[in-house]
Nucleic acid binder design. Structure first.
Length: 835
DNA sequence: GCAAGGTC
């Protein structure tokens, strides 16, 4: 039997289709797809199926000195046991094995991992094929000219794995131990995440150190006949450049007086030029994320939607660095796939009428995957969620744009002299819309100026002066950060968005655009002082150079990893004496991130704390001497924001709970409001009204939540949730079914359009129903398609998922692994706790 | 429980 091993199931299926001429059948073995035709079997891995780690005796952080990790062994253990078992079973019966993992460094290493697993079972020959896209020609060509595994290239990847583990684990443990943070709030550092964090911290330092400068700008309205247009004052600076900002007030006032005295303005010059506006290059991952972000999608969301569309077969693989379409992509053919479509048809037809179709191309041509483009298979809009359709359309239109004509703009610059003051006005007009006709994501705003000629006299009106200040540099948004990481060679197409997400999870950044926490500033400071390499992007550059040397056979794996161990060892010698100091610095900063302000009872600080049961509350730093506390809401993670409550001098609290993130405000105010609020009785309790006379009342709790609850609480726990915000009004209307009055919620901002909540029992029932309908799709990486598949397997709500037998669901649903399901199950359970 | 890199 001949065995073919690919990097992922999707690749295995497509290769099987090509090589078998569509005759392959699918078996499930240990829950893994195995494609079979004739005497051939083809199986897909799931990326790395083994992982590197320390031997078990290093597992306990308290028993092992972090420095001991520097010289510890590193062992490989299976992480995807079902796949490893299947691979070995297949290998035992194989007469030849072909490794067909992705054509890049990590693919070579994944191939070597498969090689070693196969070698445990058989001496059969193992060869390697390489192809840059899974198309009939490329695949057939590759399989008719098999090559050998490149062990040097794989060793380069192994060196990276080991160095990342040693540095990451040893320094992470050191920092966590020194700050006595061993639980889930450990303090992590790594070769990629820490320079990324430093990038964010450095920008924050620039902002903090920024000293604004005053300047003035002058404007006037020029008029030709009845048409007015704005013009701006400018002058020639010392370097002979055109400048608009006047840097001292006296000059500005003088120029303004002069401008104000102008009766008219004479046109000095009119310059027209045309500018070509080139269509975008094919999408790599970074550019795709960036485009999706201008549609308001986070990097994480953009990637999970793209993965959905990819697994469903509508777009190509979404993780790629490539910005050049492969030769075998026939743009005409792909366009033809859209000509019959009710939405895309017209655009596709018009693009096909061009004389020659020449796609744009970027600078990066790689061998792993083609740029992201539609496959030609078109989903119906109803089958996709809104986000999925939006992204599908983006990818289709982006492909259209890459084969469309450039646009042409006409720029017009008018310079006029007004009483000795020079004024300029810029106009632009889109002469040839070109690719904009099929790609509506970029601005085509025009600025029309009237037709004026040199020497013409124009009216002048409305001269004004504006005092301004220079602004600090802006924080980078997520997609801007990812672009920055790419340009600095940090991380990879598949990891950059995870890196950012990790910084959020670790409590290093908050908000959007991300801002560093005090802890992040302290971690970067500590690292800069004692282990500069870990926050320096140079470490990646050096590693890349070493990996290249290993791949080229110029350096050995041992030499590179030994050298790295020595450097790390030296760092630990430095760190040794500063442990206390570093720990203290980190702890102080962490506390600062959680501090609200003075305790009203004792004057110490009020902090966000966590009870032993895991719920958050506000407690005094003077505990146990001072036992002052305030409650917090029980959904989400509290975080301190900059706004301060003037009455209590406490910073406000924001609750991070994914989609339902909200500002809780000052916890003291919330508690006071609840203490003052009177319960308002609205009817009998449906649980205990008949028997015990319990009544339902609208209640406000000290943690800010409101509910309809029984007056016999805690004997009777019947309750219905109410919204946190807005004024609740009890109306005269009542519910036929439950006998309770209808409620009206008036939000301060939107007085005219109150929310008719209705009967609280009916409202809650409807709310639950809506929840169930969308909750599955709220899980990471689940889109409409996957939700549909899960529903077909009987999983329609989070409750279903919590109670599901993962193994049997995985066996029933194609393309969803047990691991994935387990992750979702964990998310569903975490959600249950948060509720 | 640590990293970063695959994949889902």
């Amino acid at each position: 039997m001949e065995l073919i091993v690919t990097e992922k199931d999707n690749a295995a299926r497509r290769i099987a289709e090509i090589l078998s001429g569509d005759s392959a059948s699918t078996d499930r073995q240990n829950g893994v797809n195995v494609y079979r035709w004739g005497g051939t079997r083809c199986v897909g891995l799931s990326g790395h199926v083994v992982g590197v780690d320390f031997p078990p005796e290093y597992a306990d952080w308290r028993d092992v000195q972090p420095v001991e990790l520097v010289d510890a062994d590193v062992v490989k253990t299976p992480t995807q046991e079902n796949i490893v078992r299947t691979l070995k079973q297949l290998a035992a019966d194989a007469s030849t094995v072909t490794i067909a993992t992705d054509y890049d460094r990590e693919g070579e290493l994944i191939g070597k991992e498969a090689y070693e697993l196969v070698r445990e079972e058989t001496d059969a020959p193992i060869d390697r094929v390489r192809f840059s896209s899974i198309t009939e020609n490329e695949v057939r060509e590759a399989f008719s000219n098999p090559d050998e595994l490149d062990f040097d290239l794989a060793a380069a990847g192994e060196a990276r794995q080991v160095i990342d583990l040693l540095w990451g684990a040893a320094l992470t443990r050191f920092l966590s131990l020194s700050a006595k943070q061993l639980g889930e709030d450990f303090i992590s550092v790594g070769r990629v995440q820490s320079p990324t964090l430093k990038l964010i911290v450095d920008r924050e330092r620039e902002i903090q150190a920024f000293d604004p400068e005053d300047y003035w700008e002058l404007f006037a309205e020029l008029q030709k006949d009845d048409v007015g247009f704005e013009a701006q004052y400018f002058y020639e600076d010392e370097d002979g450049n055109e400048a608009e900002r006047v840097w001292n007030e006296a000059d500005a006032t003088e120029a303004f007086e002069q401008l104000r005295g102008a009766r008219d303005a004479i046109v000095e010059s009119v310059r027209r030029r045309s500018r070509t506006d080139e269509p975008p290059n094919p999408f790599n991952t970074t550019q795709y994320i960036s485009a999706a972000s201008s549609l308001g999608m986070s990097a994480q969301k953009a990637m999970s939607v793209a993965e959905e569309l990819y697994t469903a077969g509508y777009i190509t693989y979404p993780r790629t660095d490539n910005t050049v379409y492969p030769d075998d992509l026939d743009p005409e053919e792909l366009l033809s796939a859209f000509t019959q479509h009710y939405l895309f048809g017209e655009d596709a037809e018009s693009l096909l009428t061009a004389e020659a179709i020449e796609p744009t191309a970027g600078d990066e041509e790689t061998t792993d995957h083609p740029p992201i483009h539609p496959t030609g298979e078109i989903p119906s809009k109803e089958d996709l969620s809104e986000d999925e359709w939006e992204i599908f359309e983006l990818v289709v239109r982006h492909f259209f744009a890459t084969v469309a004509e450039p646009a042409e703009w006409e720029h017009l610059k008018v310079v006029a002299d007004a009483n000795g003051c020079l004024l300029k006005a810029n106009g632009k007009r889109l002469v040839e819309p070109g690719y904009h006709e099929v790609y509506p994501y970029r601005s085509t705003a025009e600025n029309h100026l009237p037709d004026v000629a040199e020497g013409e006299l124009l009216g002048i009106d409305d001269a004004r002066i504006e005092a301004k200040q220079t602004q600090p540099p802006r924080r980078r948004g997520q997609s801007r950060l990812i672009e920055e990481l790419e340009s600095r060679g940090l991380g990879t197409k598949s990891t950059r968005h995870h890196t950012i997400e990790k910084l959020y999870d670790r409590g290093y950044i908050e908000g959007d655009p991300p801002r560093p926490t005090k802890l992040a500033m302290a971690v970067v400071e500590a690292a800069e002082k004692f282990a500069d390499r870990i926050v320096d992007e140079e470490m990646t550059a050096q590693l890349e150079a070493d990996m290249k040397a290993i791949a080229d056979g110029e350096k050995g794996y041992e030499a590179v990893t030994d050298e790295s161990r020595e450097i790390l060892e030296a760092i630990f010698q430095e760190l040794h004496d500063s442990r206390e100091e570093i720990g203290e610095h980190l702890r102080t900063s962490m506390k600062a991130d959680r501090t609200l302000g003075p305790c009203p009872e004792c004057g110490e600080s009020l902090l966000i704390r966590r009870s032993r049961r895991g719920s958050y509350f506000v407690g005094c730093d003077g505990f146990p001497d001072c036992r002052y506390t305030l409650p917090l809401p029980n959904n989400g993670e509290p975080t301190v924001i900059d706004e301060t409550c003037e009455e209590h001098g406490l910073k406000q609290v924001k609750m991070l709970a994914g989609r339902s993130t909200y500002v809780h405000g000052c916890p003291q105010c919330k508690a006071d409001e609840a203490d003052e609020a009177e319960d308002e009785i609205i009817g009998a309790c449906p649980e205990c009204g008949d028997e015990h006379g319990g009544e339902l009342a609208i209640k406000t709790l000290r943690n800010g939540s409101r509910l309809v609850g029984c007056t016999r609480y805690p004997e009777c726990e019947y309750s219905l949730p109410l919204p946190r915000r807005g004024e609740i009004e009890v109306t005269d209307e009542s519910c036929d079914e439950h006998g309770l009055p209808h409620l009206l919620v008036t939000d301060g901002e939107d007085d005219d359009d109150p929310w008719e909540l209705g009967c609280p029992i009916c409202n809650y029932a409807e709310y639950r129903e809506r929840q169930t309908a969308t909750e599955i799709e709220d899980l990471d990486g689940v889109g409409a398609k996957t939700a549909e598949k899960l529903a077909a397997a009987g999983i329609e709500s989070l409750d279903d998922l919590r109670n599901a037998d993962v193994a049997s669901v995985a066996a029933e649903v194609q393309g969803i692994s047990e691991d994935r399901l387990r992750e979702w199950q964990a998310q569903a359970n975490a959600g249950a706790v948060a509720e």
